[in-house]
Write a protein that binds this DNA or RNA. Sequence first.
DNA 1: CACCTCACACTACACATTGTAGTGCAGGTG
DNA 2: CACCTGCACTACAATGTGTAGTGTGAGGTG
Lengths: 138, 138
Amino acid sequence: MKINKFKVHEKGLNRFFGPLEARIMDLLWEKEELSIKSVQTHLETDKAVSFNTVMTVMNRLADKGILNKRHVGRSFLYSPMLSREDFLNTQSKELTYELMDEFGSSVVVNHMLDALQNVDEGLVAKLEQKIKDWKKDR
Amino acid sequence: MKINKFKVHEKGLNRFFGPLEARIMDLLWEKEELSIKSVQTHLETDKAVSFNTVMTVMNRLADKGILNKRHVGRSFLYSPMLSREDFLNTQSKELTYELMDEFGSSVVVNHMLDALQNVDEGLVAKLEQKIKDWKKDR
DNA sequence: CACCTCACACTACACATTGTAGTGCAGGTG
DNA sequence: CACCTGCACTACAATGTGTAGTGTGAGGTG
């Protein structure tokens, strides 16, 4: 599972994948497991994509350990290695940790608090509760 | 100022720049303002780098709005648009905000608390204080 | 058995980013 | 005027992604 770059100015799956990759992952998370042919058919509702293009991209995703490739009869079925939730959770966790490691916990915490003030006041209460719970656990 | 990608598995400036770019930025943040020639000379203590290579990379950084290019006599002097501190602060802030926007504040806050438990217990106290201060300000 | 089709493999090219560097031009100096 | 120095322009390699053509092999059909 190798996601190397987080694209700051994209949104959603495009932060981790190229545009075609993102559409493929989105589809596979919805449908669970598909053949290349099925993926191509689904994608083609928007705009023609060559079967070979889809195959190349999906095999690259499989090489990177993001998709699972299962031999069934003459063909292969592909499915995401992780559920969408697990994937996003893994990524957000890794990124949060990397951020705190790179810039220092207190810097990140401060930015985070700034963001909370702007965006979500109720969360500060939850955060407070979390801290209380955490203290009890020690 | 366009930094598009945050490289998850690199460290320090290499998260934002290529290796040569990173060495150049590092040097410019240390020396404040330098000509291409000076940069090349400093870098060359490790290993030969062509003047033209340094120039190309520095001009690309200037095109991206990361370096300032000042005409002085026959030649140019380059300096970082932002101080190292401002740059890192901007980046960490932007990344923190993007993370919270992308994954949801509470997800990120939870990851953050996990990280704090593993890494830095004292910071939780600071966080608590921050929340107290923040409440007073409302 | 020869053939044909289908799904996959291999290969290649385009574009962007970064590292690398050659060639050329313009302006000041001996 | 010839030359040197510093910048501009151009080009090529490697990597990641999007795109697609051609090759190959396995199975079914006449």
